[in-house]
Amino acid sequence: MLLIDCPFCGKRPELEFRYAGEAHIARPADPSGLGDEAWGRFLYGRGNPRGMHAERWRHLNGCGRFFNALRDTTDDRFAATYKIGEERPMVAEPQGARKA
């Protein structure tokens, strides 16, 4: 069971968290102004990198906050967690990382 560092509560067991999809996919400010293609990309276009993945988690059975995390998909290690609205921190890409 992983330990996940909630930006509010600190390191807590994975059991208390729920995964909430890829991070930094902002809802368009004016969806009606978007073509079907662009809206479709917003709805369904998601990365699947081998390596560092920016993703959302919620400390559901804790402070209830959604937050962002950088997780290495090759070994599950969390490189960083940060609050919603904060910029994605710079962390070294793991060896063998590959965008997909």
Binding site: R18, A20, A26, R58, F66, I84, G85
Partner: peptide, 13 residues
């Protein structure tokens, strides 16, 4: 509740 919190916290804070 999760759906609503999600929008309140992340899109419409």
């Amino acid at each position: 509740l999760n759906h609503m919190e999600d929008f309140l916290q992340t899109e419409w804070s």
